[in-house]
Design a protein around this nucleic acid. Structure first.
Lengths: 241, 241
DNA sequence: CGTCCCGTTGAAGTCTGTCAACATCCGTGG
DNA sequence: CCACGGATGTTGACAGACTTCAACGGGACG
């Protein structure tokens, strides 16, 4: 039995923009099903056009690109509320792959329905453009961080983003949040080696800023973290699809 | 006297997707004017919401973000056909600034009109989403390049993109293209220091791959360049707004 | 002719990557 | 029950790619 959009646990969270009654009904029609994914499941594949689009209801995952030389760039950490597959939906080809890291629950939409959405519901089309813009904004911040800042700050930036996002989706408990990724994933996202990532994480721990153990992130000094991370670590309100 | 969309010099270029008669008329209405910008003009500013959106008709520019520590990340090189200001249009805030490098001619649109566009013309809304997806795709490639590859390859990647884009917009003459940026701009785009960028450019010249002097890029060995740059240097067909 | 901007080159220093070894945890299978 | 391998995290030593510092040349411009 699938969740009704009306009862979507994400709707109403401060992170997401309002969702009118009419839009709700429309999205309900748009939704074709629900899907459960085990850790390690490949949801979308770089270079291919997926027949389906997803909205993440729960669980986390990774967006990444593989390069010819065998290295991997993580281009995003997938969290509840994220909309996946837009590139395939409008360009006909994904620029990255998406993989589940934890068990995930996903709303499933039909790629062909996206056309219908654009012709039938301008506000939802606008929401999709909005989401794409948020993504572009994030990637700009990521590029700036990866390109210009030292490892210590890169890691602080990523951790601040995780934590802020977790807070915004009500997943944070006091000063802790679930963070089920490996250090390797973080390293691949920041353009660092695993070893160096580990050492800078140790430095942040030593400095009493944060700790990340057993898949749980704890922020010990949020002021200091914000300082080191810089204002680029803020998350924007966004539409929910 | 402004150029009629009908006679837009960009339309018909292989880079851009078809443009129906009906869409043409609609865009003509959407267009509110034309603008000439001198080198150094600030077109859009990071953190602000611009009242206008642009499509580049001619000339080149830079998209960049300034960081707290004073460093600059170039997040894109603006070329004819690019659509500017989408973030401000839908999110209400630009994530980066845009500055003219050469003299530029721009189509000007009203930000408020974007709403009208979404309600009145689904195909154009779709085109905007498409453009946003292309941008996201590009930023993913850029992130992967900046994050994972050595300086020599980063530069080859950037140069290959420049040249491919120039070819696709008919700006390339044989194996040369106009490239009016400074080495500092390239360095800031790739997360490299100016000095190192200069030395790796010298290496590419020494290896007979390409040369870039007096604002002109010459590709001497396009096969080798493609090899070094990797397949991430391809440009995608895109809509024109 | 002086100044400013940009490109070029050499030398020295450092941040980060690579290599290597070890600890811990966990599931599997003997 | 314990041995074993595989995956992940941790730490030290060393190497190297890249940055920083510094100096110089050429062209544009007032």
């Amino acid at each position: 039995m699938t969740i009704k959009c009306e009862k979507c646990p994400l709707r109403g969270l401060p992170l997401f923009l309002e969702f009118g009654r009419e839009e709700l009904d429309f999205m309900q029609k748009f939704k074709t099903g629900e899907m459960q994914a085990e850790p390690g499941t490949h949801l979308l594949s770089q270079g291919e056009k997926s027949p389906q689009l997803f909205t993440v209801l729960s669980g986390m995952g990774l967006k990444y690109k593989m390069l010819r030389n065998g290295s991997r760039q993580v281009v995003g950490f997938v969290m509840p509320g994220d909309f996946l597959g837009l590139q395939a939906g409008v360009m006909g080809e994904m620029g990255h792959s998406v993989e589940a890291v934890t068990e995930m629950t996903l709303c499933v939409f039909n790629r062909t329905a996206i056309w219908e959405l654009f012709s039938a519901h301008p506000e939802r089309s606008f929401a999709i453009a909005h989401l794409a813009a948020v993504e572009e904004h994030f990637l700009g911040d990521a590029l700036a961080t990866v390109g210009q800042r030292p490892a210590y700050e890169k890691i602080a930036w990523a951790m601040a983003r995780f934590f802020n996002r977790a807070k915004a989706t009500g997943q944070a408990v006091k000063n802790t949040a679930r963070l089920p990724f490996r250090q390797q994933d973080l390293a691949d996202g920041l353009g660092l080696s695993l070893v160096h990532t580990n050492k800078q994480l140790a430095a942040l721990r030593r400095d009493g800023v944060l700790s990340w153990q057993n898949g749980t992130l704890t922020v010990h000094d949020s002021k200091a973290l914000g300082q080191i991370a810089g204002e680029e670590s803020e998350v924007h309100r966004r539409p929910l699809i």
